[in-house]
């Protein structure tokens, strides 16, 4: 996974509450069996409008997206993150994010920044004419006209993003603990094994 440290670039001012995973990645694109090339289907309905904010010469390929509350709500489809990454998005700024989406984003090196509505409103205005800078070390978002806005992030997610960690390797290093747990479970909760399968 590509590490995330700091990023300066154009931000797409999407706004809007409850941007759900069906808007980000409509169902028909879920028939793909690979991760790549999904950007073309991202926000398909919104991008049917030739004047859409994603494909304007200024915004095309922009690395930052600014949205309203509950971004990524709905399904668990990681395709939404693959599509965003394929579009070039590396950071999304919103008041809050749906839980499963947030888990998927970090696995794909996408930083999610939570800021209050008021800060979002400022950034949405600034995005029209200024680049936005996101600094994961300092945990701030700023632009020429917007004073640094601090954000909180789960320390583990921050570490994974900063270092570009693959957590399966991390977990396989814990194999002894898993083995021990598994053995104990077989003893104390034998009923939790599959009994029969017809």
């Amino acid at each position: 996974m590509r590490p995330f440290t700091t990023l300066t670039g154009i931000a797409i001012p999407l706004g809007q509450a409850n941007i759900d995973t069906d808007i980000i990645m409509p169902a028909r694109w879920l028939k793909h069996v690979t991760r790549s090339g999904l950007g073309i289907g991202a926000f398909e309905a919104l991008r049917a409008d030739p004047a859409n904010i994603f494909d304007s010469p200024r915004n095309k390929g922009a690395p930052i997206l600014i949205a309203g509350r509950n971004f990524g709500c709905g399904s668990s489809r990681e395709h939404a993150c693959w599509a965003l990454a394929d579009l070039g998005v590396r950071c999304i700024i919103a008041p809050d994010f749906a839980d499963i989406f947030a888990g998927n984003a970090v696995k794909n090196g996408i930083l999610l920044v939570e800021l209050p509505e008021a800060a979002i409103a400022q950034l949405l205005r600034a995005a029209a004419s200024e680049e936005i800078t996101v600094d994961l070390h300092a945990q701030t978002v700023t632009s020429a006209s917007v004073a640094p806005q601090s954000f909180n992030i789960d320390p583990f997610r921050r570490k994974c993003l900063l270092e570009g960690l693959d957590d399966i390797d991390l977990t396989l290093a814990e194999a002894d603990y898993i083995d021990m747990f598994e053995a104990k479970r077989a003893e104390t909760r034998p009923w939790a094994e599959i009994q029969a399968r017809q």
Partner: peptide
Amino acid sequence: AFGIGTSEIEHVLATQSLWLRRS
């Protein structure tokens, strides 16, 4: 019981576990 993404599916298949923070 809870939903997970594809990277987590892979993680569970490989390790039968997940790293999680209590909700």
